[in-house]
Simulated assay, not measured.
Amino acid sequence: MSNNTYKRPESVLILVCTRDGDVLLMERTRPRGFWQSVTGSLNWDETAAAAARRELREETGLKAGQRLIDLHRGERFPIVPPWRARYAPDARVNREHWFLVELASRRMIRLDPKEHRQYRWLPADKAAQLASSWTNQKLIKAWAGRRGSRRLR
């Protein structure tokens, strides 16, 4: 079987935030109550930056332009059993690449109703509490702790 038969075990996490410290989170349609930043898997033929731009546009309607910042950071995490069938039999870990898009202010977001139920702009501390994945929480806290610093970027 070719690689295209299976999902690539590599993804992006894009933190969309404002200069004032608000963070965008969206609630997935399934599982209900799962809140996250913009996320998505890389296609086999795409770079992490291209996937980040595509996912941002698909999930929010926003175009990144020059605002997309590759943080050159990320995490690796186990692929949980319910989703393992989507990946090659030997794939056990997903590599997540982190990106940042900082906006001047909150924007109206155009959700894909097949993927997300609603969105909220929240202060970073509240967003970190609501985010469902530990990697999303970690990125929000890192950004909030270093706002205005070049260390995260």
Rank of each mutant, 00 (worst) to 15 (best):
F34A: 08
K7R: 15
V23I: 15
A104P: 05
F34W: 14
A142L: 14
R106L: 09
A50G: 04
P9N: 15
K138H: 12
A52K: 08
A50F: 09
E115F: 11
A51G: 09
A104T: 10
G74C: 10
D45F: 02
A85H: 15
S11D: 11
D22I: 01
G21C: 07
V38P: 03
V23C: 05
A124L: 10
Q66P: 02
E46K: 02
A52W: 03
L122G: 09
R28E: 08
T29D: 02
I79C: 13
R8V: 01
S132R: 06
K114C: 04
E55N: 09
L56K: 06
H72S: 10
Q36C: 11
N94K: 13
K114S: 12
D125F: 06
E27M: 01
W35Y: 12
F99V: 00
R67Y: 08
V101F: 08
F99S: 04
Q129C: 05
N43F: 05
A144H: 05
Y119P: 02
Q36E: 13
P123G: 01
G145V: 04
L56G: 05
Y119R: 07
R106K: 15
C17T: 07
F34V: 06
L100I: 02
L15E: 04
E55V: 04
L100Y: 00
A48N: 01
R54E: 02
T60E: 01
R73Y: 02
I109Y: 09
R147M: 13
E102Y: 07
D45C: 06
D22P: 00
N136C: 15
